[in-house]
Amino acid sequence: MALDQYREEEEEDNGMSFLDHLEQLRWHLLRSISAILVFMVLAFLSKSFVFGKVILGPSKVDFVTYRALCKLSDFFSVPALCIEELPFIIQSRQMTGQFSMHITSSLVVGLIAAFPYVFWEVWRFISPGLYDQERNAARGAVFFVSFLFFSGAAFGYYILAPLSINFLSNYQLDPTILNEFDITSYVGTLSMLVLASAVMFQLPVVIYFLTKAGLISSAWLKIYRRHAIVVILVLSALITPPDVISQVLIAMPILVLYEAGIVIAKRLEKQKREEELSNDY
């Protein structure tokens, strides 16, 4: 009885019981899933644009990345840069292949489009449990996380995916072997490249919060820079097709973001030292 009374008093002091938190979490999840479903339905209904222009865009030679490379080819007089042919065709070898890929691609588009709102819902659930100082330090988190997410997705879609598709479509063991890709393989590869890039671009945010929590420091990041390079290269090899070009392309911006994380960690440490000095006075 005494223990139950203590728990009730603790819950009253916190303002919300454990069941109240679960109920709140349920509504945050429902709103997030609803947002994803809304964008998913819109993408499903916009089949000609979403699938014909967006999903299949990197498989066509008139894609914006290929056109830009041809312009660079003319400017620098390097014909090899211009991609004028993608020697492959996309097929559906299963009866439900096209319909299932229509649903899958719509879900991926819905997830990407709804990401800012989904993260905002997650942040609304987490932020009340933070101290005022922690909440102020993380101000603008939704904007920066969303910005990095879309930057990574754009990098994966406009840079990584087209060059990977070009490499894989032109790679042949023998001229008699034709490249005929299944629609599930194509959509799966494209989705993996875009989403993996979007997630990898969150590295500065991860470094920011780990530094705020006191788990890492700028000195620690510098000491383990070589180890981080190896880890980044390994991760790049895991999330990209088995070609060196794609691995290097995804690894380069991640290494830049790692260096940016060191700068962020230094600034946080400087701010912490200034706050400690002001508190001493």
Rank of each mutant, 00 (worst) to 15 (best):
A2N: 10
Y6Q: 13
R7S: 08
E9F: 09
E10G: 01
G15C: 10
G15R: 08
S17P: 06
D20M: 06
W27E: 12
L30G: 13
I33Y: 04
I33Q: 01
A35N: 00
A35D: 00
I36R: 00
F39L: 02
V41L: 14
A43W: 00
L45E: 05
L45Q: 08
K53Y: 12
V54D: 04
V54S: 06
L56W: 06
S59F: 04
K60P: 01
F63Y: 15
T65N: 04
D74W: 00
F75G: 02
V78M: 14
I83F: 09
I83E: 02
E85G: 04
L86H: 05
L86I: 10
P87E: 04
F88Y: 11
I89L: 10
Q91H: 10
R93P: 00
Q94R: 14
Q94K: 11
F99G: 05
I103G: 03
T104F: 15
L107D: 03
V109G: 01
V109R: 00
I112V: 15
A113V: 12
F115P: 02
P116N: 07
P116K: 06
V118S: 11
V118I: 15
E121D: 09
E121I: 05
S127V: 13
L130F: 13
L130W: 08
D132H: 11
D132A: 15
Q133Y: 11
E134F: 09
N136W: 08
N136Q: 14
A141W: 03
V142D: 01
V142I: 12
F144W: 14
F147K: 02
F149D: 01
F150P: 00
S151V: 06
G152C: 06
G156E: 07
Y158H: 09
L160T: 04
A161H: 01
A161Q: 01
P162L: 05
L168M: 15
S169C: 08
S169Q: 04
Y171A: 11
Q172K: 14
L173V: 11
D174F: 13
I177Q: 10
N179S: 14
E180F: 12
E180D: 07
F181I: 15
D182P: 04
V187H: 01
L190C: 02
M192P: 00
L193Q: 04
A196R: 01
F201P: 03
L203E: 05
L203A: 05
P204S: 12
P204M: 08
K212W: 04
A213Y: 10
G214K: 07
S217T: 15
L221R: 05
K222S: 12
K222E: 15
I223A: 14
Y224T: 06
Y224S: 10
R225F: 14
H227P: 02
I232A: 04
V234S: 10
S236E: 02
S236I: 06
L238V: 15
P241E: 03
Q247N: 08
I250K: 03
I254C: 07
L255C: 04
V256K: 02
L257K: 00
A260Y: 13
L268H: 07
K270Q: 13
E276Q: 14
L277Q: 14
L277R: 15
